[in-house]
């Protein structure tokens, strides 16, 4: 858990608990007010939550990456216009405008951050994890990317250039990690299991196949 998100969670757990329940009451009160005034429909709110938990998510991104690994023509289209290419598959949740795919290679490693808020390609990766929205990641990704990568257990070859993408507008970035060796002839479904969320943000690498 990031330091800025639960500052009292260890030393003042009881204070933290009462603070949270106060917040829960305030959230419930706001939903009551917005519902009573006719501004929101609680059934629509339920469906938004369900959609965030099931429809969007890194399973979408993993299938896109796996397809790109196995299909050079699809990879070409993905790097040219990732929104168009992703939606052409028909089996991932629809992707909105200006998704940009970044191909990691032995020469260049791409890593994505939003220093100003929490911009993230949530159709293909799901809602961002706490660490992505946290002060440590947002502050350090642009000034100390190697230190951040080390905290994720990633050590790159010394001659690999690192490129950080700060998501300061409504463009969104999906990293295509390097395909692991020893996966020749694998099906798309099997390849997708190697594609982690972090590998598509650039804070991780794709998993190596089990020996």
């Amino acid at each position: 858990m990031a330091a800025d998100d639960h500052p009292h969670s260890h030393s003042h757990s009881q204070d933290h608990g009462s603070e949270l329940s106060d917040l829960q009451l305030r959230v419930r009160a706001l939903e009551t007010i917005l519902t009573e005034k006719g501004y929101v429909d609680p059934a629509a709110l339920d469906q938004i939550i369900e959609g965030c938990e099931t429809k969007i998510g890194p399973h979408n991104g993993a299938r896109i990456v796996a397809r790109a690994w196995g299909d050079p023509e699809f990879k070409r289209r993905l790097l040219a216009d990732a929104t168009e290419a992703a939606n052409s598959l028909g089996y991932v949740s629809p992707v909105g405008s200006h998704l940009i795919a970044l191909e990691n290679t032995p020469q260049t490693h791409h890593m994505v951050v939003c220093t100003l808020c929490s911009c993230y390609p949530w159709e293909v990766l799901g809602l961002p994890p706490v660490w992505y929205k946290s002060a440590p990641y947002r502050s350090r990704a642009v000034i100390d990317p190697k230190g951040v990568l080390a905290e994720f257990g990633v050590a790159l070859p010394s001659d690999t250039a690192i490129r950080i993408w700060d998501s300061t507008a409504e463009t969104r970035f999906l990293v295509v990690p390097i395909r692991p060796e020893g996966t020749e002839g694998w099906t798309e479904e099997r390849l997708a299991e190697l594609v982690t969320r972090d590998s598509m943000v650039g804070t991780g690498l794709a998993k190596a196949p089990a020996p």
Binding site: A2, L116, P129, V130, W131, A135, S139, V142, E151
Partner: peptide, 18 residues
Amino acid sequence: HDMGGMHGFGPVEAEPDE
């Protein structure tokens, strides 16, 4: 909110199976 380049927030702590 404009945090890029600031020091002092500590390490990035990822939560497994969040």
